[in-house]
Each structure stands twice: as structure tokens, then as C-alpha cells.
Design a protein around this nucleic acid. Structure first.
Lengths: 212, 212
DNA sequence: ATGAAAAAAGGGGTTTTTCCCTATGCGTAA
DNA sequence: TTACGCATAGGGAAAAACCCCTTTTTTCAT
């Protein structure tokens, strides 16, 4: 008896290629391919379409891998999610693991490793490389730089600060006194260890608070 | 006789999966896989390693697809390059085509299309979908927004402007008078239709002049 | 070599940003 | 109740950014 696998991945060629790869593994068979999380959940309405393992990409339109994994954890917890990274940063990986992924394959994974990972996820409930384990330890252990908590109002302000508006204009759009805005700004400069608006803009874009 | 294909792609899993896919096409066989352009050029030193077609990713470390394709056009013009997009914008596609790629496969390509594309590239010298053709027409036809030509010195300045340095500091780093720097800035504000440094930073990042 | 164009630099003024310090109202935990 | 934290907001001043317009220097084609 083979374990069933569903691949959720918006890149069609990669998806089909992965499909053929997995289908050749002796212990696995591909049930079907999906282009995004929404498609997957629709499929799941028929219990016959619920596989043992979901091989999940993260960057997808409509419903991304993180959201989808969260829903699977809630509603279909018997399904094991194995995340597949194309080009992700540490924060995204951590989000994906927190969402309930049982393993995370980086872009330098060999196909033999993929087979091993699928097997381990199915039989032991998890698979993690040293890289990922180290990342997890780092994130737990240290009061990681990213212990920076930004309040909603601050994030709001940052988004405005990435436009060409003056602080006065931002104040009026946020229905606050210009002096309050200056307060937000000063607090952020302090928190983020920056000296001027340019630094703030770069920070915002780097951390995906503002997407240009 | 089968046509030989080499896959240049830093994502190992995708590379291997694509390899198996191509190997199953009746008229093609995979010679070997490469992780980047440098590896490919090293391989090419032995003439036996020169294939009919190179299936080329763009985003790669060490030597990316565009640079590599340019070199192939010069030194190994008999080799046909078929570009494979994972997540690219119009400008990158155009650069790749200008570099000499004979075709460009978008992320929504089916495997049957891949086979067709490989065949057409080999037998007619090019393969382009409607999407790409339209893109080409657009770029030729219109005095596209991106008729904005930035001089080297301006680009230099923009990179500095994305840091937290003051204009005075930038001037001293570029060995120019602060007043000259102000001149650059004013010209750019005019050219790019922006009003302040924030706009400049966002423009720079959006257009990959400055990568945060 | 010379005149036009482009690059570099300056003068001077307004607006915005940045910085530091203080003050008020409001909820809530000791 | 008191006291503390927190969001909001203000005053004042120096620095930087922005804007317009002129001058000098360099470059380059004819």
C-alpha cells in the first residue's frame, strides 16, 4: 500500500515535475495537483481526496501555504504537511512551522532527501534538517532582534511614511496632531535604531510592512 | 537521435525533477544538471559537454541566467537557450531575451508545452507564447515609461540616498560638492516625478537599483 | 580652437525633519 | 486612592531637505 501525496504549488511545471518524481518513489503515489490552497480545500470536501501528505509551496496566489497549513491543522489534522521552499527567509520558515508544517525542505534538497523526508514525516510525524533545527533553536533561545513589537498604529504610520507625504499630511490622514506623529516617529527611530525617514522606509520594505 | 539538454538551475529539487521530465520526452535526453552559470561554462570546456539546448533559470547565485546567456551567445552561439521563469517581472524577461534566449517559459507552463517549446526552439530557432510576444510588442512600440535613462553617477547617488547618510555625507563620499549632490537630486526628482527622498528610496528599491 | 552642452558648484531662502523636553487625560493595577 | 504606564500633543530650536536661479569648469563635436 502506497501513501498518497497531494502537491500544492502554483508553478505548473515544477508541480508536474515534482509529481512525476514522487510517483516514482516506491512507497508514494500522487493523488492530484493543486495550484493553491483554495483549490485544495475545495478538493477536500470529498473525503476520497484527502491524502496522507500534502507537499506545500508557500508563495501562492489566492491562499498561501501558511494560511492553508493553519486550516489543515485545525480541520484535517491527520494530514501531514511538508513545506517546500523556493526562496524564503527565516521568518517565513518559522511562520510555516508555527502553522503546523511537519517538515521544511530547502531549495538545495536532493530527490533522495525528498523521499526520505516524505517517509519520515509519514512514519515518525516530522522531518527536519540540521539547518531548520538550528533555525528553530536560534529563534527560541535568543531574544532575537525581531523581538521588536510594533503596534498597529505604528505600522499604520510606517506605511504612510513610505509615501511622499509630509508628516503634517500623514497626521491629518491619521486624524492625529502632527506632534503625535512626531512622537511615533521618534519612538520608531529609537526602537529600530535608525536616524531618519530613509532608514524607516528601507526597514519597512525589508520587513514587508510596505510593499512597493 | 535525441537532442541533448542541459538544465541550469540552482534549486536542486526543481532541477532534478525537470531533468526526469525532460528525459521522458521521446526526442530529448538530459546530459547533466548545473547549479549556476559558472558551473556550466566550466563543463563546456570539454566539447562533449556542449548540448543542443540549455534550459536556463534566471535567478542563480554566482552567475545568473542573463550573464550566462550573454556569454553563450558570444562563445557558443550554436547552443539554444530556453529561459525558465520562476517569478520574474517584465524587465527581467526583456533582459533575458535581449541576452539571446530563444524562448521564455512562464511559471504557468504545462509539461506538454515544455516539450513543444524544446522542439520548436531546436527546429525553428525560437519559441514564444502570446504573452511574451505581446510583451515584446509593448516594449518596442511605446515610448515605454522606462524611457528613463539614469546615468551611472545618478545611480551611484541613488544608492547612497537609500542609506541614512545626509546629502552632505553623500557628497563627501562621492568626492563632490554638496551643491552638486543637490543638483543630482533635483534632476532625479524631476525625471522620476517625485517630490522627496522617500520617493527616491521607494523608486530605487522597486527598480532594484538598491536592494535592501 | 571654439562654441554649445553637460557637469559641478554656489547663493540664498523656505519648508520639513529631527531632536529634546514637558504636559495632559485616561485606564488600571497595586 | 494613588501611582504608573501609555497615547496624545505642544514649544522651541538646530539641522537637513528642498527649491530656484546663477556661475564656473569640463567635455566634446565640428
Amino acid at each position: 500500500m502506497k501513501y498518497s501525496v497531494v502537491i500544492v504549488e502554483d508553478h505548473v511545471l515544477l508541480s508536474q515535475a515534482m509529481g512525476e518524481l514522487v510517483d516514482r518513489f516506491s512507497k508514494f503515489k500522487v493523488l492530484y495537483l493543486c495550484k493553491n490552497g483554495q483549490e485544495l480545500l475545495t478538493k477536500f470536501k470529498n473525503p476520497k481526496n484527502i491524502p496522507d501528505i500534502v507537499l506545500m509551496d508557500i508563495n501562492m496566489p489566492i491562499m498561501n501555504g501558511i494560511e492553508t497549513t493553519e486550516i489543515l491543522k485545525e480541520k484535517y489534522s491527520q494530514v501531514n504537511v511538508l513545506a517546500l521552499s523556493v526562496e524564503e527567509d527565516d521568518k517565513t520558515i518559522l511562520k510555516m512551522l508555527r502553522a503546523g508544517a511537519k517538515g521544511y525542505l530547502l531549495k538545495d534538497t536532493e530527490k533522495s532527501i525528498l523521499e526520505k523526508a516524505l517517509l519520515e514525516v509519514q512514519e515518525t510525524g516530522f522531518y527536519h534538517t540540521k539547518d531548520i533545527t538550528n533555525l528553530l533553536l536560534d529563534s527560541l533561545n535568543s531574544k532575537n532582534k525581531s523581538n521588536i513589537f510594533l503596534k498597529d498604529r505604528e505600522i499604520d504610520f510606517i506605511k504612510h511614511a513610505c509615501t511622499e507625504k509630509t508628516y503634517k499630511e500623514i497626521a491629518s490622514e491619521m486624524c492625529l496632531s502632527p506632534k503625535t506623529i512626531e512622537g511615533y516617529r521618534d519612538v520608531l527611530f529609537e526602537k529600530l535604531n535608525i536616524r531618519n525617514r530613509t532608514g524607516l522606509v528601507v526597514y519597512a520594505i525589508k520587513n514587508k510592512i510596505y510593499i512597493p
